[in-house]
Amino acid sequence: MNTTKKLRLGPLPKLESTKLTFACPVSLKQDLDRYAALHAQAYGEAVDVTTLIPHMLEAFMAGDRGFRRGAHATQSPGRAAATSPPVDSLPRP
């Protein structure tokens, strides 16, 4: 079965990340594990659920028109931080 065209997430890019812990219902964890297995089957590379979750959330937020409209009024802290220079590179007084 070719599931490539049925999954919303394509192959995953390598990104810099930060750790975030959250709790979810057992049924959601089972669905996430099943999605990870389908993703691995579709793209030939095993991927951990914790790697998939940020991409799923990003795709969800990109598809949320209300969120995108609100993003025009204010820039999210994550996006602003990505364009700011790292603290280590700032000149010291």
Rank of each mutant, 00 (worst) to 15 (best):
A80P: 01
A62N: 13
K14N: 06
A23Q: 09
L57I: 13
T51K: 10
R79C: 05
G44D: 08
T74N: 12
N2D: 15
K6D: 14
F67C: 06
G10M: 03
F60A: 13
M1S: 13
A82N: 06
P11K: 11
A71G: 04
M61N: 01
L12A: 03
Y35W: 00
T21Q: 09
M61E: 07
K14V: 08
P13N: 05
R8G: 10
K6I: 07
C24M: 11
V26N: 09
G44A: 06
A73N: 13
L20F: 08
D33W: 01
E58R: 15
R65K: 11
P11T: 10
L9C: 05
S17D: 04
L12E: 00
L90E: 04
A80D: 07
P93C: 05
R69C: 10
K29E: 07
P13L: 10
F22P: 00
D33C: 06
S17A: 11
H55P: 03
T21V: 04
T4E: 15
T83W: 08
L7E: 07
L28W: 01
S17L: 02
F60E: 12
A40L: 02
G44V: 12
A80H: 10
V49N: 00
A40T: 09
L28D: 04
P91E: 13
R92Q: 12
G63E: 09
A59C: 02
V47Y: 04
H39W: 01
A40Y: 05
A71K: 13
E58V: 08
R92E: 12
R34E: 13
C24S: 04
D31S: 11
S76V: 13
A37R: 13
A36W: 01
